[in-house]
């Protein structure tokens, strides 16, 4: 017997845990929503929470099933586990954080300047990490960054008149 996800016990275990976690979190949130609802549903209607609960239970059951499969098939990992340095998640994490800061930045600086700052920093960072920290390469980062800002200003703010913060 083979683990169902990519033939990997670890992935199957992780997927099982994710499904169980989502099921539990979902059911907890659903409980809160049910408690807060004061309305009534039409006769015959199984209610606004029926299908959500059904899907969440199915997710939980599948999660439990995957955990069992992972337990049964342990030690059958195909291929070597991927070795990852601790830095593998640093860049993605940094990008996520800076994207989460973008709405605030856009409100503070205006959309085009915020985009320019974001793009300059990231282009500079990636150029530096990829090709070494040579000043000649880094000098282009602000150029492209400001270019991105101007593009956003011209296309999205002026041309399409999106109500982006400014």
């Amino acid at each position: 017997m083979q683990p169902p996800i990519d033939g990997s016990t670890r992935k199957t275990l992780a997927a099982g845990l994710v499904f169980l976690l989502l099921c539990l979190v979902g059911l907890a949130m659903l409980g809160a929503s049910r408690a807060a609802w004061q309305g009534s549903s039409m006769p015959g209607d199984p209610g606004p929470f029926f299908l959500i609960r059904l899907c969440l239970w199915a997710t939980g059951a599948a999660g439990a099933g995957l955990l069992i499969l992972a337990a049964v098939t342990r030690g059958q990992d195909r291929g070597a586990p991927r070795v990852e340095g601790p830095g593998a998640l640093a860049l993605p994490g940094l990008l996520v954080l800076s994207l989460l800061a973008m709405p605030v930045l856009m409100k503070l600086l205006g959309s085009a300047p915020a985009v320019a700052v974001f793009a300059t920093l990231w282009i500079g960072l990636l150029a530096g990490l990829g090709h070494g920290w040579q000043p000649r390469r880094l000098i282009t980062a602000p150029l492209f960054g400001v270019g991105a800002g101007i593009f956003v200003q011209l296309v999205f703010v002026r041309l399409l008149s999106l109500p982006l913060p400014n």
Binding site: M29, S33, A36, G39, M42, D45, G47, I52
Partner: peptide, 11 residues
């Protein structure tokens, strides 16, 4: 909810 206007999973 599009039928009863109940809030679902919204917290």
């Amino acid at each position: 909810d599009s039928l009863t206007d109940a809030q679902r999973l919204t917290m």
